[in-house]
Structures are given as C-alpha cells and as structure tokens.
Design a protein around this nucleic acid. Structure first.
Length: 491
RNA sequence: GACCCUAUCGUCUAGUCUGGCCUAGGACACCAGCCUUUCACGCUGGCGACACGGGUUCAAAUCCCGUUGGGGUCGCCA
C-alpha cells in the first residue's frame, strides 16, 4: 500500500485565511487517519507579492490550530529531506523549468513570443467571434521560425491536446471538460519564473502527493492539472474539491471581514479545537447526529466520502455555542491555563494568587463562558474592587426602602458566621429572608451589586466565599457609604 | 458571455448513490415554559424546509429533462 500524502499549499501573500484553515484541516485529517504525511508547501512563485512575514504568519496560524505532527518540532514539511520546515517553490525554480523544457522537447509545450499587446488583441478578437479559446500562432510555428527569434524573450505554453479531460473527484464525481474550452496556458513566464499550474503539478508529482484536497475554486484548474500530470508522465493523484466558506450573507468570506484571519479567532477567545470542529462540520457531516468532536475524534471519523457539495455559511451564533461546549469539556486545570493569559492581558493580577484559589474561580465560571474572553467580565472583581456599579441595577436594588438596612444586617451577620462557607452564607440569607417574609432575591441582588459591581455573575454564595469575609464586608460597607453619599436610602 | 459545480427549515445539515421505513430527523438561532438568587447551563414544548415546471413509476426529497437561483473558473495571481 502506498503511503498517503496530502499537502497544504498556501501562498504567502497575506494572512492565513479561514478557507486555508478548512483546506489544511481536511488534508491533515486524511493524512493523520491514514498514518500518512502532511506536507506544507509555500507557493511563492509570485515574487512580487510573496513576503517572508506572511510565511511566518502561516506557521503561527497552523501551530495555534494544532495542525502539525506531535513528534516533530514543527511541520513535517519535507518528508523526503527530513527537514521540518516547509517547501518553498521559490527555491525550486530550476526543477520546474527543467520539466517545462522537457515538455518543449517532447512537443507537449512550445515557446511563444507573443507580446502582452498581441495577447490582449487576440483575446478581444476571440470574444467578438465568440470563441472559447484563443490559440497562439506559435503553437504551430516551425523550428526555423522559432530559431529566427534568437534571444527574444518567450513564454512557454502548454500545448493542450485534443479530446476531453476527466477529473475524477472523490466528492464531485467525474467532471468532464472539453479541451477545446481550455487555452494553451502559460507554464513559464518570459522572466523564467514558473507559473502556479506547472509548479503545483511538478511538486505534487515529485512529492508523490496521493490526495489533492482543496477548495472547489480549483475545480476548473484541475482539468489543466490532469493534462499536465499526464504530459509529464506522473501518476495522477486523487482529487477532492471541497466547498468554499461563505460569510453569513452567503458571499465569499472576504479578506476584509473580521474572522477571515484565522488568528482573529484566537484574539476573540476561541479554542482552536472549536474552530477545527466547526470547520469540519462546514462541509462534512457524520452519519449520526453528533456535532461535538474532539480533534482525535475528527481524525477517526472524518471521511472524504461524506463531504458535502455546496458552500456553507459561517454562523457566528453556532460557533459561539460550540466554543461554549468545548470550554465545558476542558478540565479545570486546562481551562485555567488558557484563561491565565487572557486575565493577564486585561491587566488583572493573577500571578500573585494561589493556583488553588484560581481553580475555584474557574470552577464557578466554567459553565458560563462562551469565549475565553468572557472570563474578564465574569471574574474581574475577584482581582480588583469594582470601580463602578451598574447604574440600572443600583436603581433597582439599592434605591428601595430598607435596602441598606438589610445590607447592614447582612454585614453584621457575616461577621458572626463561624465557618466561612457557601452553606453558612446561604443560611444567613435564608434566615433574614424568612424573617422579612420575602424571597432570597431581595437580599441577594443588592449584595451581588456591592461585591461585584454587576447584576449578573456566578452564584453569590460561592463567589462571596472565594472573595473572603473581610473583602465582602468591606465592599458592603463601601456600597452603603456610596448610597448614602448619593442621598439614597433614608432608613 | 462561455464553461464547470451546486440547490432540504433563517443558518449548518441527515436522508438522495441502492425510489416506498420521510405526514422529512438533528443542531444553532428564535418563541413559550420549567429549573433558579441573576446570567448562563440544563430540561420540555413550539415555529420552521424538499427552489420551480415537466416527465419516469403503483410509489420521488430521492431517478431523468428543462427553468430559475447561488457559487466558481475563464491571467505572464495562486
């Protein structure tokens, strides 16, 4: 059995797009589930637009997503050289040109001395005559005619053969393209630089890639590639063209949109496994109703055969929900480790605090988080006094007659509590509520506001326990003083 | 414009290949209710789709043709 080899071949001309991530994921999953190899190849044949820093960003995005190999220091970029760095097409020019020249020698490609102006004129003519293709006159030029051009710059064009080309696609089925629809495309520029189509095929052929999995924007190109594979005498790989990722309006996910950049999701507090899970579902579905998948489960269950054909829209609400589910699946320890940087980033002093105490906070917040960033609003008061009180809540809970008298009683009762536990606090509140003949809410909400500055948050007795008796009482005193200064409660 | 791909609830989808088990299932969202000290979680219920038109068949979401909609490709970009 031949080793399964897949690849992701992004061009370093911008950030790592969400669509790139989908392609990378599918290729990586197929490689992993077959114990194969996943190749990273930077398609930087466009010298003008390719930049080194973009290559670094691709690496950073893939690393964050966890799309790499556990046993390697980075990506298993170059399986045949043992180098873990990615292949770079810019370093393989000679190879492509050599193969192109071979095609010329074999009569499968030819030199074309057309100028850009000539081409434009011919295209215009073809349009007017409603021809699908325009053929270069150099296609059938005699060797003498070619020789007569001497050192003039030329492009190398592929001589598209007669007939019909079939792309056997694992998800799309057999796609037939009449070769008459395909131009003699350029494979080497007059500058000597190879063009994408040539580089891809030479690389996939020489690297022994078995599955070419990519977006269906390449479906039409695939016909050209099949022709090249055959002309070059390489084994044609299996193709699988997946649907594209659309935005919420059903349009192509624009690079300008927030979230187009994979790393946007990291800054927004999403777990990489959430994004992977979501992207997997956007174009693939299991045979049962499950939607929540760990990365290992995806590796086990994913299959090209069950891939969908139509493009899926990115649904923010759904990925938010999914992220909440993944957050809940995390152990407290693991979640804390992910939360720490977020807390630090918000300027909260977490490093002087005992880890056990931090873990307790995680425990009472975990089920409320949809993103990691939510922890700041959820737990900032543990690290600093509330600097302001929600105005609406203050109106509602503190302005009532007797609210401050209640708080006075509660603060006093707190001093007397023997064991500072949630149960003990609960008992204190229950006792007073009963005496007043009211619900717990009348007492809980004003206290919550005093302790956290907010109207919502974790369970009051749990958070108060973690805050500590002194802090709680101090914050209640402060609240009472505040209300008094505002000329509120007169009791 | 030509060529290629595609079409099930608002969204993601199961079911389509191998017609009947589909008065079309699930999830997100939304609505109502329950739980509850708040929010969230969880639970219960509700709303809600086979794009349209022709065939084929005893029977079609499922097969065939056409129409329409959506997407993609037509570069010396990838």
């Amino acid at each position: 059995m031949t080793e399964v080899r897949t690849r992701i071949a992004p061009s370093p001309t911008g950030f790592f797009h969400i669509g790139n991530a989908k392609t990378a994921l599918y290729n990586w999953l197929v490689a992993r589930q077959n114990n194969g190899t996943f190749i990273l190849r930077l398609e930087d044949t466009d010298v003008e637009r390719s930049r080194d820093e973009y290559a670094d960003i691709i690496g950073e995005a893939l690393t964050w997503l966890g799309i790499n190999w556990d046993e390697g220091p980075g990506f298993h970029g170059q399986p045949d050289t043992g180098d873990y760095g990615p292949y770079r097409q810019s370093q393989r020019h000679a190879l492509y040109v050599r193969e192109a020249e071979r095609l010329v020698t074999e009569g499968k490609a030819y030199r074309c001395f057309w100028s850009l102006d000539d081409i434009e004129a011919e295209r215009e003519l073809a349009r007017q005559e409603k021809r699908a293709t325009c053929r270069s006159p150099w296609r059938d030029a005699t060797p003498e005619r070619v020789a007569a051009e001497g050192d003039a710059p030329y492009a190398i064009r592929f001589r598209v053969p007669e007939g019909v080309t079939e792309v056997h696609d694992l998800v799309q089925g057999v796609v037939r393209v009449d070769n008459k629809e395909v131009d003699d495309f350029i494979i080497v520029r007059p500058s000597g630089d190879p063009v994408f189509h040539l580089a891809v095929v030479v690389d996939d052929g020489l690297m022994k890639v078995t599955h070419v999995i990519r977006g269906d924007d390449h479906l039409t190109n695939a016909a050209k590639h099949v022709m090249l594979f055959e002309a070059l005498g390489y084994t044609v790989p299996k193709f699988a063209h997946h649907s594209l990722v659309h935005d919420e309006h059903g349009k192509k996910y624009s690079k300008r949109l927030h979230g187009a950049n994979v790393l946007d999701w990291r800054t927004d507090g999403y777990l990489p496994e959430t994004l992977l899970n979501y992207l997997a579902l956007l174009g693939w579905a299991p045979s049962d109703d499950r939607e929540l998948f760990t990365v290992d489960e995806l590796i086990k269950e994913f299959s090209l055969e069950r891939m969908g054909l139509s493009a899926g829209r990115f649904d923010l609400k759904k990925i938010q929900w999914l992220n909440g589910q993944h957050i809940r699946m995390l152990s407290r320890e693991a979640l804390l480790d992910r939360l720490l940087p977020v807390l630090r980033n918000a300027g909260l002093d977490v490093d002087s605090k005992p880890r056990d105490w931090l873990l307790e906070i995680v425990a009472i917040c975990q089920e409320k988080l949809r993103t990691l960033n939510d922890i700041v609003a959820q737990a900032d008061f543990f690290f600093a006094e509330p600097c302001e009180y929600e105005e609406k809540a203050a109106q509602k809970h503190w302005a009532k007659d007797g609210a401050m008298a209640d708080m006075r009683l509660l603060a006093d009762a707190m001093r007397a509590v023997e064991l500072w536990t949630p149960d003990a606090l609960h008992a204190v509140y229950n006792a007073l509520a009963e005496r007043l003949g009211s619900g717990l809410g009348r007492l809980v909400h004003p206290t919550r506001l005093a302790l956290t500055g907010k109207s919502v948050g974790p369970g009051l007795f749990e958070l108060a326990t973690l805050l500590g008796r002194e802090t709680c009482i101090a914050r209640m005193e402060r609240a009472m003083t505040y209300v008094e200064s505002m000329g509120g409660d007169q009791s």
